[in-house]
Amino acid sequence: MHELAVTREIVDVAAEKAEGARVRRVVIEIGRLTPVAPDCVRFYFEICAAGTAVEGAELEIREIAGNARCRACEASLELAGPVEGCGCGSFDLEILAGRELRLMELEVY
């Protein structure tokens, strides 16, 4: 449900950065380890955008794969979700990617 707050923030910041123009497309990044469900954001986006400079805009969500370094054996590994360990048995990981929640770019007109 916090996705509603996150989506409002996307729309607010996009409208502000558009500086009076209208927004045609919004591009965001959501990491696979970020506790934000892309489908929920898509669902809320149109509702939140209604009546703002972002109304009618297309939302593009780029999902970023999780990537980590194992602190026990130094191996580099891909992570599909938050409850994953290294093949060596350790769960002590340094997360290098996958925690993104970023507004990347806008197309305005």
Partner: peptide, 17 residues
């Protein structure tokens, strides 16, 4: 088409918080 332009933002969505 009406001219559109791309604005790079690259900021955390929760930056205000």
């Amino acid at each position: 088409h009406e001219t559109s332009r791309t604005v790079r933002i690259e900021q955390d969505i929760l930056a205000r918080n």
